[in-house]
């Protein structure tokens, strides 16, 4: 990674232009050629330095719904439960965390009513309770990572 890569990461986490030649506009911001910016983004995606490039949608405003869930999973059952949870297409992220509540996952559905059904199916399949933490308010969520 060189300075231009860093400038791309720092300057283009938002604000990618919605114009015919967006890489040309972005190129001016980062001080590189249009083709170079495109090639670098493609390279960083391939290397895994970037996980994504494009629009980030707000599921709530698309008519969908998100929630954060947590479970307390006994160590001996952890892999079995993780496999059940991960098999749900509505589960977007799942993290093991160091806590009594040791499994934390995000459910994303097209419609708000879908969340409850996914939670109930996970509870039935695992025999464990799922705590549901829907967002009540959001305080300025933005990627501000600087490298």
């Amino acid at each position: 990674m060189d300075d231009i890569d860093r400038r791309i990461i720092n300057a283009l986490q938002g604000g990618f232009p919605v114009v015919e030649r967006p890489f040309a506009a972005a190129a001016e911001t980062v001080g590189a050629a249009e083709e170079d910016v495109l090639a670098r983004i493609a390279r960083m995606l391939g290397e895994g330095t970037l996980t994504r490039f494009g629009p980030l949608f707000n599921a709530d405003r698309m008519g969908g719904a998100f929630t954060l869930c947590a479970m307390s999973v006994p160590a001996a059952e952890f892999e079995r439960v993780a496999a059940i949870v991960n098999a749900c297409p509505e589960v977007a992220h799942n993290y093991e965390r160091a806590h009594r509540l040791n499994m934390w996952f995000v459910i994303a559905c097209d419609a708000p009513g879908g969340i409850r059904a996914v939670i109930e199916s996970i509870e039935r399949a695992t025999g464990l309770a799922v705590l549901d933490f829907p967002k009540l308010d959001e305080y300025f969520v933005e990627m501000k990572l600087a490298v």
Binding site: I8, I9, L12, Q13, G14, G15, F16, V18, V19, E20, I41, M44, E47, G48, T49, L50, T51, R52, F53, G54, P55, L56, F57, N58, R61, M62, V141, E142, M143, L145, V147
Partner: peptide
């Protein structure tokens, strides 16, 4: 398409457009 994307940005259906860095890789 650009008109629709700008509208989705304006009303918040799109949060932002750009690169998403991989924290772990960095």
């Amino acid at each position: 398409v650009m008109r629709r994307v700008r509208a989705m940005l304006a009303d918040g259906r799109i949060r932002r457009i750009g690169v998403v860095p991989n924290h772990y890789a960095l």
